[in-house]
């Protein structure tokens, strides 16, 4: 062993260098984001005020606040959740509790991966073809939200499935042995212990849904509307669409305004994400078995 000391020193030095190299790579991914966040806060921060959040855009969107897009995004996200959460949770229950290990299950899993991987603009085309035209919902909150729901379905399915699978099988067997049906077992023992994980997934989905632009551009999000939507068959403004519009298509917008919109949008998304992360860490600390 003693003869190899020189070699050991060398490989130890390489070890140190490699470590730093990889650390730098990780930092290089994260640093730009921190810089960008800093710039958004620096330039968008001054725009923010209570009035900014509570007044609608005015003067051809070159002044005023973001009330209508903000409310519109809440509409879109809410309707999308109502559509996707029940289907997603049920699908995850099937995959975790019922699905045998066969070709159909493999196809379902492949379909979920694909649903998550299909470009958002293709989801938009699907939304136009299916919800706007075929089902005759027109360009409306309903059509846009359903498009978003289909697109974000994999988020709910995957989060719920993992959370259901983390409940030990022994609990299920104990229940079955007592004569509980599969559904009674799921309802009494599995779901109550997975609910927090499911919630984490739903929060993540909210964050995804709120930020999407392409899927709603042609299905329900309006360029500009001077009023709030009254129902799901109305069009609506949306935060993401509003940022796109005022930063590319509207002349005479003050330079700081889109920064403010971007800051609010990214705050919404990041707060949701942070909630989801925090919730997950809290759960990890709380042992139930």
């Amino acid at each position: 062993m003693f003869e190899t000391t020189a070699l050991n020193t060398r490989s130890r030095r390489i070890e140190g260098l490699v470590r730093i190299l990889f650390l730098m790579m990780a930092v290089m991914l994260i640093l730009p984001v921190l810089i960008i966040l800093g710039m958004l806060i620096a330039r968008g921060g001054p725009v923010l005020s209570w009035a900014f959040l509570t007044t609608p855009p005015t003067n051809g969107m070159t002044a005023g606040g973001i009330l209508f897009p903000l409310v519109g995004t809440v509409w879109l996200v809410t309707v999308a959740l109502i559509a996707s959460v029940p289907v997603g949770v049920a699908a995850a229950i099937y995959l975790s509790e019922y699905a045998p290990d066969n070709w159909l299950t493999r196809v379902i899993n492949l379909a979920i991966i694909n649903l998550a991987g299909v470009p958002s603009i293709v989801h938009a085309l699907f939304g136009v073809g299916a919800f706007v035209l075929f089902f005759r919902f027109g360009t409306s909150i309903l059509a846009a939200s359903l498009t978003l729901a289909v697109m974000t379905l994999p988020v709910v399915i995957v989060a719920t499935r993992e959370s259901l699978r983390s409940v030990p099988r022994a609990f299920r067997e104990a229940c079955w042995n007592m004569g509980a049906t599969r559904w009674q077992t799921i309802r009494k023992v599995v779901l109550p212990n997975a609910i927090s994980g499911i919630l984490t997934g739903v929060i993540l989905e909210v964050s995804r849904t709120a930020g999407e632009t392409a899927p709603i551009m042609f299905t329900g999000a309006a360029f500009f509307l001077p009023f709030l939507p009254q129902g799901v068959l109305d069009q609506t403004m949306a935060m993401s669409m509003h940022l796109f519009v005022i930063s590319t298509a509207v002349p005479g917008v003050p330079e700081e305004l889109p920064y403010g919109v971007a800051l609010v949008l990214i705050s919404m998304v990041l707060v949701m994400n942070a909630l989801s992360v925090g919730f997950r860490m809290y759960l990890r600390g709380k042992k139930k078995w």
């Binding site: 379909a111 299909v118 085309l125 699907f126 289909v150 599969r182």
Partner: peptide, 24 residues
Amino acid sequence: AVAGLVFVAGISAIIFIIGIFVFI
């Protein structure tokens, strides 16, 4: 009934993928 219901939800991902292809 629940078994049937969750099965339908389970295959919804397949239905949507096919739906996307069919509608575009």
